[in-house]
Amino acid sequence: MIQEKIKLATTSLTQDEALAVYRDMILGRVFEDRCAQMYYQGKMFGFVHLYSGQEAVSSGVISQLGPLDYVSSTYRDHVHALSKGVPARAVMAELFGKATGCSRGRGGSMHLFSAEHRLLGGYAFVAEGIPVATGSAFKSKYLKEVLNDPHRTEVTACFFGDGASNNGAFFESMNMAALWKLPILFVCENNLWSIGMAHSRASSVHDIYKKALAFDIPGVQVDGMDVVAVHKVAKEAIERARAGEGPTLIEALTYRFRGHSLADPDELRDKEEKERWRKQDPIPKFQHFLYEQGMATELELKSIDREIEVAIDDAVQFALDSPEPPVDEIYRFIHAEDE
């Protein structure tokens, strides 16, 4: 089986796709920056884990999924939700705990859900979502082979971090997915840190993609700060999954520009390390690529940036204006019977 590090990517991105990816990355970045502001202004509460720095992974993978494909996420789930098409209004409103939020104010930052967008949820225990995503992939196989559904095979993209790659659920799920050739991408966003535990101190094998060897499935390591490279790797994995050839483990080397959560003072990580990764910022890198390929001018990208700023202003205003869920509905949704 292929176990490889992808160095340089020749892209198959069309101009339209590239601009959509760019827009999605900016959406993620601006949304998260605004979350930090709102958190410090006391508009949102609890644990808020921001994704800034990792946008190339979410956008590079999810931009290639269709509406019938599934995504599962972790507690760092805002941007995965946005990439899957959940409106910024609904995500922001959820963070404000409002009735109009994508989980109707019951979930919060770490539990974003959208049945309509096939977002299976943010799961707040490390590795918790991996078996669930394996279940949606099982359902897609069942749909084809038991229920004889004629449509193209649905694919699940399952996102988790380096910390999860040391958890039993990761191994157990990859085993089942490989065994039954389930249509799933295991996307490990290796940002090198599990709160304060350095990846190198937590995993006996530093290259997570090599863990795929144990299950005889393809494992690929990719520069997670390069959306073009992520896009290419994900494209191949999605094609394999749709063709019934089973799962792929993708290790995207990436970095979070902020602390573990907004409650984390981020004092442990080395300043030089942070600066080194800052220079790898996936957004300027992709801008440069777009200019180089003649796919966009600076003016065009700036106009996208402005549109996103306006959309996020609108999302914040929507969240502010939205009502709280009525407290007398506190028992609503416990059981399937209550609607």
Binding site: P131, G135, S136, K139, G168, A169, E172, S173, N175, L179
Partner: peptide, 28 residues
Amino acid sequence: YGELRMLDTPIAEASFSGLAVGAAMCGL
């Protein structure tokens, strides 16, 4: 019923339970 409807799982209780949850969320 065949192998998929009478699914023998590996001995991995946490994960096959999670798999069942995911399948149930998606309509099975």
